[in-house]
Simulated scan of single mutants.
Amino acid sequence: MAQTVHGVIARGKGAPVEVVEVVVPDPGPGEAVVRVQACGVCHTDLHYREGGINDEFPFLLGHEAAGIVESVGAGVADVAPGDFVILNWRAVCGTCRACLKGKPWYCFNTHNAGRPMTLADGTPLSPALGIGAFAEKTLVHAGQCTKVDPSASPLAVGLLGCGVMAGLGAAMNTGGVGRGDSVAVIGCGGVGNAAIAGARLAGATTIIAVDIDPRKLEWAERFGATHRVDSSAEDAVARVRELTGGFGADVVIDAVGRPETWKQAFYARDLAGTVVLVGVPTPDMRVEMPLIDFFSRGGSLKSSWYGDCLPSRDFPYLVDLYRQGRLDLDAFVTETIALDEVEQAFARMHDGDVLRSVVVF
């Protein structure tokens, strides 16, 4: 039987979000209803509200979430009612060309729930990243539920659902950071600081945080940065080179996603080094550079999709590191808020005052 819960929606481009009644249908084959315990406020949610993703309003926002499986549909075997899960937005299909090549983190046919949640009047809602977790309960594909240790805090581990995983994976998976490497991270918000934490976990010995905000550079040191560069006051490329023996960093991660920061990343890396773009650019952004620079510097230029993660592999592993005290996910939680405070949290996030606000149910 369908349930009515409260959730946060965006009705139109730029309009303030609203708390409304949301109808959640019973799970169909391959689906699950999850009682949400906590959900982080991510920039992607703000992009949805601003029409930066698509125009399929109204959106049910929220996607960085953890909770308890309440019910499952026919054919679901990997999770069961009562399981503590982190929600993910890349439920792999197992049959596309990427999955069949043994690279399911690139899956080109990821799954979402087949039926929509709706407003009380029957208007279909578009769930953010196929999840829609700014709601007391949400309907997802069962593959979007990753079972993890239930002793972990949902406030912290739910953040693996998007931004923190994107940063950790940009370093550990996409960038392939290894023991003794030098790493520079440009942009030290939630994703950038997660990349710094990932670089430390992977064994990097020189980790350079680059930002224009002194507060964010202070945060970066907490997550493992060994040096910090205020790029509003000095040339970031020259300083990164100076800190790496004049060569440039082995891996440079652009967690901003603008042409100027990508160029900084490109020229701040060592010959044959790696650039990872994990910050999300807008469609209008362009980069113009001499082609000879690409040839003469060699190395790898990579984009990181969700940290190239495989939730079934990475989430349990990272939750174990969190429980062992080796990965401080709690440090990403700046504040906890109620469901009706999401609009104010967007403003604080836009102003750079928080790493993550987390809605607690």
Rank of each mutant, 00 (worst) to 15 (best):
R269H: 04
T110E: 08
G122N: 09
T138R: 08
D55P: 00
D351I: 01
V360R: 15
L321T: 02
G130H: 12
V157N: 09
K147V: 08
S182P: 03
L46H: 15
D330C: 06
K302Y: 05
V342R: 08
R97S: 12
R222N: 06
E64D: 09
G62F: 10
W89G: 05
E260K: 06
F266M: 11
L61K: 11
R35Q: 14
V276W: 09
S304I: 09
T244I: 05
E70K: 10
V140A: 02
E260T: 13
G246P: 01
W105D: 12
D250F: 01
E234T: 06
A331P: 02
F294Q: 12
C309I: 15
K103N: 14
L243W: 02
G279Q: 11
N193P: 07
N112I: 05
A171F: 05
A199C: 09
T336K: 13
A171I: 08
T138V: 06
G192C: 10
V319L: 03
T282W: 13
S357K: 01
A204R: 08
K101C: 06
V359C: 13
S312Q: 13
S296A: 15
D149P: 01
D314T: 00
P290S: 12
V69K: 09
A220H: 07
C188Y: 04
L139H: 00
R239P: 03
G75P: 02
T336A: 14
F223K: 04
V140H: 01
V92M: 14
T205E: 15
S231T: 11
P127R: 11
